[in-house]
Design a binder for these strands. Structure first.
Length: 765
DNA sequence: GTATAAACACTTTTT
DNA sequence: GTGTTTATAC
């Protein structure tokens, strides 16, 4: 293979980082410096130099990154070769290894992966069972503590013996966390289930207790590459260290300035201390930013310079200066939504940008709603990443729970979800009795169900019959596991369980959309099978394979149509992505930086890195927006602009004329003064501000003054707005109020039938 | 056992 | 304000 021309496309430091592939390497890759390119070419180069693809282990942070890299490597060396690369997230790669070695750590190869909502509901149950006060033991906090312990390789047993941790728990009024942790681990094992953190912890335990297994994988993985190394936690660090022990061909890529996951145990020290771990390491710095204009890069540099703890580097851009970073000021959060959307509107028409050239980035998911509403109002298509994902929806989790139970009937969390859905007359008392029995036998719900005759005194004949019916249903589907592929079996289960019928009969708009979601999930399974077959035509794609995949999916991975859309996501989710125009919104004190991360300088530094990540997503324009007041939990709060705005060198900023005034009063904490001041129009940048005022007035009068009898006034041909489906035209009406049904042709989601008394429709015109 | 209403927590970020 | 969990009546 001729690599000459590929290498010649790289700059000097990139070339060095590709060609020196032996031994430990640290690649410091600044934002937009062509990191993915270097990684892909380096892997292709390894293969061109005789390394077998299956000897390469490449660990990424997201599935998406892995997929894209595999594709790009495929383009360089051919898909046939790229197929055999071990490339994926830590979680997905090691979940697969754990399937193969499951018996060595007390699981079966069909083990279930619990997502965080499974974990949370299990924790809630344990708190109850241990008679602990649910007010002092919040499930989220408890799970967080357990998660942190696991990421630091502290098992339940070790936790119980750790006085320091227990001391801390006493100080925070949760002295019994170690008991919850023990019980949680026990029940996970009984359910043959692992949570996300277990996947990494158990790999460590596997390697520790089975030197032959460890040695097998050490031999196999001759070359190891880790992307986003600054965001690895201790558990991941130890795995990587162990695996690279033999060959020492370890390459880590990262940027300490973009370390933003310490809240979930990531240790920036891993990248800072690489030099101590591997003494004869090679260091490569990629400092030229190919993504952004000079102004954006310089602004970001001036901000991150405020952080003390970092590896020295000079990120620079050879592009034009470009526009300064514009600062937008709004009086309220709602006005901020309109400001930003209006600005997007102007930019896209004025400068001919596509909607897919825009991203709105926020600190917390809850901020998305206001922008969604503003975008819908202007009929601008958008895509929301994160938040309640598709896979978290009730109906989806219900069907997935059936699939999980058929693959692993010991999965008690899944059984509890579906044992009475669709309704089969098995109520809470029955489930309670089953759980008590299971606890007394230290076994799963399923094993109680199988031995129901031993507990016949606890359940009356009718109940027993119903339970047996459920057991038979599951068993019947289990026998199909070998014959049917994932799609056919899932389809059959959806059908025979009555889920499809139940949702089909529910004609409320919610029911209709649930039905469609189930259809979409089934289509997704079918698609999964097809892509797997493309990779390997002989592969049997059964339910277990699908479930493993779906457990580790996020909605960043969802496929999408080709309609250009604005992207809405948290700053965390935007890492690794780039957009021509980036709006960073809600840039206020106590929001960004977050109130919860303002305690120590260390936390502030992480928030600053997060802000750095946000700015450096932009290629042409970065726009920062803040509001002077914002609704939180129902009531209004006054806000001040974020300290980060004033930490950027002002020569790269385009400030609103009234910013200084606000800053001053903010410092004096007399923000009310400036708030009450009447702004001169909505935005001093927007020429269409008259238009804009109109928008605002419709908005304020809409949902607030919404009359319940409004729906009765809907007539044929009206344009209406639905909270979820957006704008649509009424094309048919039938039956008398309150049974009136309307057929509405929605612009984005097509024709739908809605019952007027349920559908929250707003008359637009 | 089920359907409805009231109470409750939730908001920092995610594999 | 929202979605989920518990209390109450049927």
């Amino acid at each position: 293979m001729d690599f000459e021309h590929i290498l010649n496309e790289l700059n000097d430091s990139q070339k060095q980082a590709v060609a020196n592939y032996q031994g430990p390497s640290l690649i410091i890759a600044g934002a937009g410096s062509g990191k993915t390119k270097v990684l892909t070419v380096r892997i292709a180069y390894l293969i061109a130099n005789g390394v077998q693809p299956w000897q390469i282990l490449a660990l990424t942070f997201t599935n998406k990154a892995a997929r894209e890299m595999r594709e790009r490597i495929g383009n360089l060396i051919g898909d046939q070769q790229a197929r055999y690369l071990n490339m994926g997230t830590f979680h997905s790669i090691f979940a697969k290894i754990l399937r193969m070695e499951a018996d060595k750590i007390g699981h079966t190869s069909n083990y279930t992966i619990y997502d965080s909502s499974d974990s949370k509901s299990l924790i809630r149950k344990i708190i109850k069972d241990l008679h602990l006060d649910p007010d002092s033991y919040k499930q989220g906090a408890v799970l967080g503590r357990i998660s942190k312990a696991k990421n630091n390789l502290v098992t339940a047993k070790a936790y119980a013996n750790n006085d320091k941790l227990k001391q801390f728990d006493r100080e925070t009024r949760m002295p019994d966390i170690y008991r919850i942790y023990q019980e949680y681990s026990k029940r996970c094992k009984q359910s043959d289930a692992m949570d996300f953190d277990d996947l990494l912890l158990n790999i460590n335990i596997l390697f520790r207790d089975n030197p032959d297994v460890a040695s097998h994988y050490q031999n196999r993985f001759k070359y190891i590459l880790v992307d986003e190394y600054q965001d690895t936690n201790l558990s991941q660090y130890i795995i990587v260290k162990k695996l690279s022990e033999l060959h020492q061909n370890i390459t880590v890529v990262g940027d300490d300035a973009q370390s933003i996951y310490s809240f979930r145990g990531a240790k920036i020290e891993n990248i800072l201390n690489f030099r101590n771990d591997y003494k004869d390491y090679k260091l490569f710095k990629l400092e030229r930013n190919y993504r952004s204009t000079k102004n954006i890069v310089n602004a970001a540099n001036s901000l991150i310079a405020k952080n003390k703890n970092q590896i020295q580097k000079k990120i620079y851009s050879e592009k034009d200066s470009g526009n300064k970073i514009k600062i937008l000021r709004a009086n309220t959060d709602i006005e901020e939504g309109y400001n930003v959307v209006s600005h997007i509107f102007d930019l896209s028409y004025g400068e001919n940008y596509k909607y897919s050239d825009f991203a709105i980035l926020y600190r917390t998911n809850s901020q998305s709603r206001i922008f969604e509403e503003a975008l819908r109002k202007r009929n601008i298509p958008y895509k929301l990443y994160g938040g309640t994902s598709f896979y978290q929806r009730k109906e989806i989790k219900d069907l997935l729970s059936y699939l999980r139970v058929v693959v692993n009937p010991n999965d008690s969390e899944a059984i509890k979800r579906i044992i009475n859905y669709p309704k089969r007359g098995i109520g809470a008392t029955t489930v309670d009795k089953l759980e008590t029995a299971a606890a007394s036998q230290a076994s799963s719900l399923w094993s109680i169900l199988l031995n129901l005759h031993n507990f016949s005194s606890s359940f009356n004949a009718g109940t027993q019959k119903k339970l047996m019916g459920f057991v038979r249903f599951i068993q019947e589907k289990m026998t199909e596991l070998g014959n049917l592929n994932a799609y056919d079996l899932a389809q059959k289960i959806a059908q025979d369980s009555g889920i499809l019928k139940d949702l089909f009969l529910d004609k409320s708009p919610e029911g209709v959309s649930r039905y469609e979601n189930i259809k979409e999930l089934l289509n997704g399974i079918n698609e999964f099978i097809e892509t797997e077959k493309e990779q390997d035509p002989d592969a049997e794609v059964g339910l277990p394979k699908y479930l493993e995949n779906v457990a580790l999916l996020t909605d960043m991975d969802a496929k999408d149509d080709d309609i250009p859309k604005i992207s809405l996501m948290t700053v965390h989710a935007s890492k690794g992505l780039e957009y021509k125009n980036v709006f960073i919104v809600g840039v206020e004190q106590n929001l960004f930086p977050s109130q919860m991360s303002s305690g120590s300088e260390k936390e502030i530094e992480e928030e600053r890195r997060l802000f750095y990540v946000a700015i450096t997503r932009a290629e042409h324009n970065a726009i920062i927006s803040y509001a002077m007041s914002r609704r939180k939990w129902g009531n209004f709060n006054m806000c001040n602009p974020s300290r980060f705005i004033s930490e950027i060198n002002p020569e790269f900023l385009d400030m609103p004329s009234n910013f200084n005034l606000i800053q001053k009063s903010a410092n004096q904490e007399s923000i009310f003064e400036s708030f009450n001041e009447k702004p001169k129009g909505f935005s001093n940048f927007n020429k269409k501000s008259t238009n804009f005022g109109k928008f605002k007035s419709t908005k304020t009068s809409s949902f607030k003054n919404f009359k319940p009898d409004n729906a009765q006034n809907i007539t044929l041909g009206m344009t209406v707005e639905h909270a979820r489906f957006g704008l649509g035209k009424v094309i048919a009406l039938e039956a008398e109020w309150p049974e009136t049904k309307a057929e509405i042709d929605f612009k984005t989601s097509g024709k739908r039938q809605l019952l007027l008394k349920f559908a929250k429709l707003k008359i637009v015109e």
